[in-house]
Write a protein that binds this DNA or RNA. Structure first.
Lengths: 158, 158
DNA sequence: CGCATATAGTTTATATGTAAATAATATCTA
DNA sequence: TAGATATTATTTACATATAAACTATATGCG
């Protein structure tokens, strides 16, 4: 007997009247619960989700990035990024380098230690992905991604 | 020309190899961006998302609830709920009442002010739902909810 | 040149999410 | 009934999101 519908999970007495609302709550709830699991995994390796994200962006880019460029790729508000990078720097997982041409700009680069830590996480992360959502067929996964991308189209307008 | 794919948005150089990963990132990203919008709306009314959620749960229940019962319905970690209720109480949107039979239990109830504030938010919230995701057909919305509910089945196991 | 304006980051203040420890009260059990 | 254990809620400590104000540096323009 499966009871994974939102109505049941939230102990709602009435079914959802508005499918838009139901879909959005489903998105948010699923995201929260998945992020919980990832958070646990990261914590076991001394990282938070946001810290991991910064490292992954830097590895993906392959070269130092201005600190606000990193923030931009995370949908993150500007002030938050400073403290994040501070803590990563303290753990020696990234380095700050001031740009010589434009002295306002601060570059962030991932260190060898940072790369090593990411590498340790690659396999467990892949396993977690499969465990969380591997029971959907490839076709369902494609469809889910397509629907979510379509959902986000309402955001580009402003 | 639409560029709402994750690969484009994240400035990734390589397409996703793993559809599981792509789907999960799509869920998380969509949720983050939507929650951003809701957060803005709530802030205009002096609330945060979590505070709104507590009020909505209390209104839905129609009677006082033990504080941990509220926390449980929010996927929220226990310690956080205390401060949330503190702030709501300070705004006189909820009240705490200690249970007389079991003096460990603290009930939380929504006040008339709280109900009034929620009522003010009902219409704008509905509009935001429609604006964010109203461009999907009813069939797509149903399908999206169904896929997300299926995705969450992996979580019930532990 | 010299000032107005813009840009890149940081700091500050407040609210949240998480874990671990603690306090108060209930319940169980020998 | 005394002591162990469980439950409910809070406190403490830290990392994070958000907004607003601020610093340092660049750029534009008369």
């Amino acid at each position: 007997m499966k009871h994974n519908t939102l109505q049941h999970e939230l102990k709602k007495k009435q079914p959802f009247e508005i499918p838009e609302q139901e879909a959005i709550l489903n998105i948010v709830r699923t995201s929260d619960q998945f992020q919980n699991r990832f958070g646990r995994l990261f914590r076991e390796h001394g990282l938070t989700s946001s810290q991991y994200n910064i490292l992954r962006i830097l590895r993906g880019e392959g070269k130092p990035l201005p600190i606000l460029e990193v923030a931009g790729r995370m949908i993150q508000v500007v002030p938050a990024i400073t403290g994040l990078v501070d803590r990563l720097e303290k753990q020696e997982l990234v380095e700050r380098k001031r740009c010589t041409e434009d002295r306002r700009v601060v570059y962030v680069a991932i260190t060898a230690d940072g790369l090593k830590l990411l590498k340790e996480l690659d396999e467990p992360l892949n396993e977690l992905h499969k465990r969380l959502i591997g029971h959907l067929t490839k076709s369902e996964l494609r469809q889910l991604s397509r629907l979510l991308e379509k959902a986000r189209q309402s955001l580009s307008k402003d």
